[in-house]
């Protein structure tokens, strides 16, 4: 495309009209804010909360299996990918041979965290998600280093809901689709998430 450079028009003949326009605009906005519903840009926080998106990256969550134990298998992917190095994990052994491993310690330093959501991207087990909780308050630094239990039971979760989590847009490769179809037609099996519990 050819470069289309335009020269801005400096010859604007300034006057005093915009000053009165400004006064009128302010008055109009004030009245609209007061009387027209949905026109106001502000809300009465904290009584009312902003409507934040379902992708919001707030405080993390650890998901649980059906028996209440963490889904996390302490693979350290999140701790590896974390650019802020805020995740600390210690691994232990589980008796079940199918799972083998789980985190005996799992701590996130929420003061270091940059809420980039890479831990969610890196998790191969859908064990770490983010909630929409964003009004985090603590009285000491130590209080905001939250541990496994705290991550599994975020008190405000019911109120705020989950935020950023892996979404599958079904961009499966053609060969996979073929393999899955074969499985379905030959064995009648429709695979979902692997059942690890």
């Amino acid at each position: 495309m050819a470069t289309s450079v335009i020269t801005v028009n400096r010859d604007t003949r300034p006057g005093y009209y915009p000053i009165f326009y400004g006064m009128w605009l302010t008055l109009r906005n004030m009245l609209e804010t007061l009387f027209v519903k949905g026109r106001s840009a502000t809300i009465e926080y904290p009584e009312k909360k902003r409507n934040i998106s379902t992708r919001y990256r707030g405080v993390h969550l650890l998901t649980a299996r059906e028996d209440g134990t963490p889904k996390c298998v302490a693979c350290y992917m999140c701790a590896t990918v974390c650019p802020a190095e805020c995740i600390y994990i210690e691994a232990g052994e589980r008796p079940e041979k199918k799972i083998e491993k789980y985190p005996t310690r799992f701590e996130i330093d929420l003061l270091r965290c940059v809420y980039c959501g890479f831990c969610v991207d890196a998790c191969p087990e859908e064990a770490i998600l983010m909630s929409r909780e964003n009004d985090l308050v603590g009285t000491s630094r130590a209080e905001l280093v939250i541990d496994r239990e705290n991550l599994m039971h975020r008190g405000k979760l019911a109120e705020v809901g989950t935020g950023y989590r892996p979404v599958d847009h079904d961009v499966r490769r053609p060969v996979r689709v073929a393999a899955l179809e074969r499985l379905k037609s030959e064995h009648g099996i429709v695979p979902g998430m692997p059942n690890r519990s």
């Binding site: 604007t12 300034p14 915009p18 000053i19 326009y21 400004g22 605009l25």
Partner: peptide, 13 residues
């Protein structure tokens, strides 16, 4: 609105 407020505003110019 911003343009109306500023571009031809004598003080601003």
């Amino acid at each position: 609105q911003m343009e109306n407020l500023l571009t031809r505003n004598k003080i601003f110019a």
